[in-house]
Simulated scan of single mutants.
Amino acid sequence: MSGDNDLIKLYSARILALAADIPHLGRLEAPDATVKRRSPLCGSTVTVDVKVRDGKIADLGQDVKACALGQAAAAVTGAAAPGATLEQIEKARDQLRKMLKEAGPVPDAPFDGFEVLSPAVDYKNRHASILLSIEAMAEAMQATTH
């Protein structure tokens, strides 16, 4: 039953608190770009709306239908993304992927809140849900530059 204990540890109080308080929850009126991402493995979905001014996220909205880990990741993304450039969002996305898939370091500030999800490294089936929000944010930002 050690696997069950490990899973319980994965859903720590910090993760559950983040999942319960996602910044920028809800949709924006007249966004500059909207991206919806879905994890085929678990069915989690995240829709991200962004408004961009001077190459930075001026406003964002998130509709998050995901497990607690996906919700916690959306909370970290929502807290750190305002004011970020496409380059910063892409760097955070790439660093989060490395943290999860290669046990790499925690992403740089202001995205260092992803540290709370480092116990998920061993749960490959959760990685896609954790990445949804930051991937959707990067894709939405890319759409505003074209």
Results as ranks from 00 to 15, higher is better:
T45P: 00
H24Y: 06
I134F: 06
I8C: 02
P40L: 12
A74P: 04
E135D: 15
D94F: 03
T145R: 15
D63V: 14
R53L: 13
G78S: 03
K124F: 08
L41R: 04
I89A: 15
I130N: 08
K98F: 04
K98V: 11
Y123R: 10
S12R: 10
K56M: 01
T45E: 14
P23M: 07
L28A: 08
L117Q: 02
A128S: 13
S129F: 00
G61E: 09
K36W: 00
H146S: 14
G70Q: 12
A140Y: 09
L7E: 08
L117A: 08
L117T: 04
R97V: 12
G61A: 06
D63F: 00
R27F: 00
V52N: 05
A79Y: 03
A80P: 04
C42R: 12
D108A: 13
S2V: 05
L132Y: 12
V64N: 10
N125W: 09
K51Q: 13
V35N: 03
T45D: 06
D49P: 02
P23Q: 04
M1I: 01
A33D: 03
E87N: 05
L100W: 09
L117I: 05
L7D: 03
A80V: 09
R38Y: 02
L28P: 04
G78D: 08
A73Q: 08
V52R: 11
V46R: 09
V106W: 04
F111P: 06
A109T: 14
L7M: 13
V116T: 13
L100H: 12
T34E: 14
A103K: 15
A80Q: 04
A136S: 13
G61Y: 06
A13T: 14
L18V: 07
G70F: 08
P31C: 12
L41P: 01
S133T: 12
K9D: 13
F114D: 07
V121F: 00
G43I: 05
P23S: 06
V64D: 06
R14T: 12
G78A: 04
E102N: 14
